[in-house]
């Protein structure tokens, strides 16, 4: 891994300021993808801005008919959340099957979504459940957030603050997983809301296949 300048910040404003000042900065959330990527020298940022100290980005709360999950909430926390388990059990189950226990203790929902790995689990849920991605600048519909392989609608100095998932009538996620990484070789998230059923496929294409609306 090439060396970099590490910066720990405690607020979203400080994080954005650090990014604007950096030559070629990157935000790090849980680092479970970013650190391996940097070890492989596929990424070599000049500055690594650690979001781990921003308390405002952590936690899960009910927000009317939606459940709001802070960007720095770990997969383990989502999986264990009684709020998520009762509002959208499929989402808790999805989180509990990402990677392995040690990865789930560090990896975050915001990091996963911002990275938009074509085989990641969360993006399928964000689209199928009609979630809204909230950033320091705006709100982005889940449908419009993922723009291509490892590409999202996020701008350079924009970071996810939370993701809001509306409660759903019924949802389920199944994946055929890589036995080593537990990434989805192919995964399908199905969600029913009112008269609409959405089916979203991850893994099989470069970016989440929006599938069908039944």
């Amino acid at each position: 891994m090439y060396n970099f300048s590490y910066q720990k910040v405690t607020s979203v404003d400080d994080a954005v300021e650090a990014m604007q000042k950096a030559d070629d900065g990157k935000f790090v959330a849980g680092g479970q993808t970013m650190l391996p990527t940097m070890k492989h020298r596929l990424a070599s940022p000049s500055d690594v801005i650690d979001l781990g100290g921003i308390e405002d980005l952590k936690g899960i709360c009910m927000d009317g008919d939606a459940i709001s999950i802070g960007a720095m909430t770990t997969h383990a926390e989502v999986a264990a959340s009684s709020d998520v388990q009762s509002a959208i059990p499929a989402l808790a189950k999805l989180a509990g099957n990402i990677g392995d226990p040690a990865v789930r203790n560090r990896g975050t929902i915001g990091g996963s979504i911002a990275n938009n790995d074509p085989a990641a689990d969360y993006p399928a849920a964000v689209i199928a459940l009609g979630a809204t991605v909230k950033t320091n600048k705006r709100e982005i519909a889940g449908d419009e957030f993922f723009t291509g392989m490892f590409e999202t609608a996020l701008e350079e100095d924009e970071l996810i603050t939370s993701i809001s998932f509306p409660k759903t009538e019924a949802a389920a996620y199944m994946k055929f997983e890589n036995p080593a990484s537990r990434y989805a070789i192919v995964g399908v998230f199905v969600a029913k809301s009112g008269d609409e059923v959405k089916v979203v496929v991850t893994g099989a294409t470069a970016c989440e296949h929006r599938g069908m609306r039944l």
Partner: peptide, 13 residues
């Protein structure tokens, strides 16, 4: 108190 992979966490973290 939580298990982590110490090859995928910086010392400074």
């Amino acid at each position: 108190g939580a298990s982590v992979k110490s090859c995928t966490m910086l010392a400074v973290q």
